[in-house]
């Protein structure tokens, strides 16, 4: 029993870090543009397919395939910002409509190109680590480490670099940031594109663990938005924390309760936390 619990906790951490990396994009995009970008789930799906394509069809090594996928998704993100998102900045409703519309378009494109047949590249990094009787697939450990490193790196960039500090300042007071000489439009574009790149990375790594279909993004974007709210919007470390809390509570919940309702356990947790701390768990931190 303890092994099952610990195993599920670890699984929760891994899935949670994937929620976390998308939640980070959600929170950054929202903080800087006022848009809840629900299409980030679709960008993640794009990242997964691009990785599969570059790895399986083109034959690149897996890390190069992921890198290529991230670049591809960033370019799509840049085009989306120039063509669509830049016109919905600061307008929550229009941003929502545009991003939800994009989901259908992206899913339809992938469906047309690759059909509904699931794609698999689960043999990227075989083998498992055995730690104190617990079996941990190597790939999951590697993925988790990459996510943690990227999120921590983002945190450092946000607190230690000029661009990061400008982004954090802009989220607090856009006009004052403009008065400091921050090129605010460009900053917003950078953050929108970076968020799509994070989602693309999430998708690229997801592809190494699970099979992919055109609709995989939708569950993850909902979880990521939940995680961002749980954390307190605007917090980087919180996005990771929120994601992990969500992942763990789902996985642990399904040990003790029917696993058909696993999505509900995280939600119950979310509501419980918001009742106690309406601003989220980490509401006041970068």
């Amino acid at each position: 029993m303890t092994q099952l619990v610990i195993g599920q906790m670890l699984n929760g951490v891994i899935v949670g870090s994937l929620y976390g990396i998308i939640a980070l994009g959600v929170t950054l995009t929202f903080g800087l543009t006022g848009i809840v970008n629900f299409a980030l789930g679709a960008f993640m799906m794009f990242g997964a397919y691009a990785t599969w394509y570059l790895y399986d069809v083109v034959g690149l090594p897996y890390p190069a395939a992921v890198l290529g996928a991230v670049i591809f998704v960033s370019i799509v993100g840049y085009i989306s910002d120039r063509a669509l998102f830049q016109f919905t900045r600061g307008n929550l409703v229009n941003g929502l409509l545009v991003s939800i519309g994009m989901i259908s378009v992206f899913e339809a494109l992938v469906l047309a190109a690759f059909t509904t047949t699931p794609k698999d590249l689960t043999y990227v990094l075989p083998g498992a680590l055995h730690v104190a009787g617990i079996v941990l697939p190597k790939i999951k450990v590697a993925v988790c480490v990459v996510f943690l490193a990227v999120i921590f790196g983002t945190y450092l960039a946000l607190t230690r670099t000029w661009l990061g500090r400008a982004a954090f300042a802009y989220a607090q007071n856009p006009e004052a940031a403009a008065l400091m000489g921050v090129r605010t439009g460009r900053l917003q574009t950078i953050v929108v594109v970076y968020s799509t790149a994070l989602a693309g990375l999430g998708g690229g790594l997801y592809a190494s663990m699970y099979s992919i279909e055109p609709t995989i993004g939708s569950a993850y974007i909902l979880k990521a938005v939940e995680a961002a709210i749980l954390a307190g919007v605007g917090s980087v470390i919180g996005a990771l924390g929120g994601g992990i809390i969500l992942g763990v509570s789902e996985n642990l919940g399904s040990v003790f309760f029917p696993s058909a309702f696993r999505d509900a356990y995280g939600l119950v947790f979310l509501i419980a936390i918001l009742l106690v701390r309406p601003g989220g768990l980490f509401g006041d931190r970068p």
Partner: peptide
Amino acid sequence: VPEGRQIFPRL
């Protein structure tokens, strides 16, 4: 230096 200070409260 804008009206109402407009400092960055969380910095």
